[in-house]
């Protein structure tokens, strides 16, 4: 019990600053603006937040808080991929003002994501998020892990095309899904950079490069899709 209370007591930088709190809200807002700009839509002026908006933002915010991103303070109670996706998808499930998706649409939307999950699971040999950042030693595992991450990012344009993404909870969901996909990339880049740079520097440098790069690529893909349409 003391261990849990101690961990919660030390979790405030994660909850309030990074990777949750100010960083999560700011980065998710920026990502939403960037994605709207890439798809040629004007910046959205949101109506005042309702109580359900405030409640629905909590589960995705918890996932962002618990992501194993360097250089965040250590938190011993990490989550796994299934729990993370379930918490991130909460705003989507709560959007009862839209009709529920048909089974075919559901398979199209989540099929690639689940396939990506399989790749990452096989590559990392585990579902825990902290293991997704570990760069494996065997090359087949590396291929599977990176392939899984690539598929994950490829699944995002379809997942983020939903209008519910524009609410704060949806914005946090989008950021969470993007960051989950960048975890293996971040691990790979860190392993590569550790040979050339000091460890403390890679801890500060690599994660932002990974998720900025992923956000740019995602925006580019959305732009291309828009141009094709």
């Amino acid at each position: 019990m003391g261990e849990l209370l101690g961990a919660l007591g030390l979790a405030w930088p994660r909850l309030l600053l990074y990777p949750g709190g100010i960083f999560a809200l700011g980065a998710s807002w920026l990502l939403a603006r960037w994605l709207r700009w890439c798809t040629g839509q004007p910046p959205l002026s949101l109506p005042p937040l309702t109580l359900s908006d405030r409640i629905n933002v909590l589960p995705p915010l918890i996932v962002l808080t618990l992501l194993p991103l360097a250089p965040a303070a250590n938190f011993p109670y990490g989550i796994d991929l299934v729990v993370a996706v379930s918490l991130l998808e909460w705003p989507q499930l709560c959007a009862t003002n839209q009709p529920p998706p048909e089974r075919g649409a559901l398979v199209r939307r989540y099929g690639l994501l689940i396939l990506a999950g399989l790749g990452m699971l096989e590559g990392a040999g585990s579902m825990t998020l902290s293991d997704l950042v570990m760069w494996p030693t065997a090359w087949p595992a590396r291929v599977l892990l990176l392939g899984g991450a690539g598929l994950w990012l490829a699944a995002l344009p379809r997942l983020l095309a939903d209008p519910a993404t524009q609410r704060p909870a949806g914005q946090c969901r989008a950021l969470g899904l993007l960051l989950l996909g960048t975890l293996p990339l971040s691990g790979a880049l860190t392993a590569w950079a550790n040979a050339a740079l000091p460890t403390t520097l890679t801890g500060w440098l690599i994660p932002p490069i990974a998720y900025l790069g992923a956000a740019l690529v995602l925006g580019g893909v959305l732009r291309l899709r828009q141009a094709k349409a």
Partner: peptide, 18 residues
């Protein structure tokens, strides 16, 4: 080796804190 984690009580406590 741990391969999946569900810290349900820790998650609930974090939600209360947040």
């Amino acid at each position: 080796q741990p391969v999946a984690t569900l810290p349900s009580l820790a998650l609930a406590a974090l939600m209360v804190l947040l």
